[in-house]
Amino acid sequence: MKRVMVQSAVLLCLLVVGVVDVDAAEKSSCLQCHADLGGPLSKPVGLWQASVHAENRVSCHDCHGGDASELSMEAMSPVRGFIGVPKYGGVPDFCGRCHIGVKEDYDASAHGLALNNGGAQCVLCHGDHAIKQADLDLINEQSCSRCHEYDRAAKIRTALAEVDSAIALLDLEIKQLFRTGIATRDMSGELFSVRNDFHRLFHNVDVEAVTAQSASFLERLEKTSGRVDSIKSDLGQRKLIGAVVVVLLIAAGILFLLLRRTYGENKSPR
């Protein structure tokens, strides 16, 4: 018996949790070398880590090419698909490999048409490496007036605000549902698609088009928010029933104890 107990104690402790090196699994050779280089060559590492790309596990080689499993300069050989840094005018094509829809709208916009004359391109607003997800705050006086007057941009911003806040609210609600264990993939997929199309709208920088399309976006959002609301009302009902059961159980507990008192301390008769 003694040995069995010792064994089970050992087994328990073996099963008990230790520590692992969390980072080891995810490091690419790009990050490993560049982090240690120092100076401007290591700056992108930190910037990237705070970016929306890092958040979604889009790593260096996904944009710059090369072989992230190779731990030598060979990783940056053109043979391994290394692209390196695009020129100013090449940036829209560079980013547009993934952001196809956005690029389409950008190309047709005032910004895109003026690209070869120094027109604004992706990183001017979104930043490089520390890439930010498109949101309303990217449209601000400081940023826009680097090239032109702010008034048109301000109008676009106002037109976008309603849809933008509706998306943000819905996004938060869906995240809260997910936290409670609800499968939200469909809903967040719908929202993602609306947000995607909506973010394309940012890029045509056309005040009239933006104003005209806002209503249709709100309509699309209503479908998703309808589903969210019905789930939330279900959850509310569950809580109500749960409260009733809790009260009943407590009542049963009290009744048991009261019933016990009617028996006092005496031996009950046979």
Partner: peptide, 14 residues
């Protein structure tokens, strides 16, 4: 039973 069982059932319910 029944004295202590009732008390136990009360605690179980809680």
């Amino acid at each position: 039973f029944p004295n202590y069982t009732l008390e136990e059932m009360g605690v179980v319910c809680f």
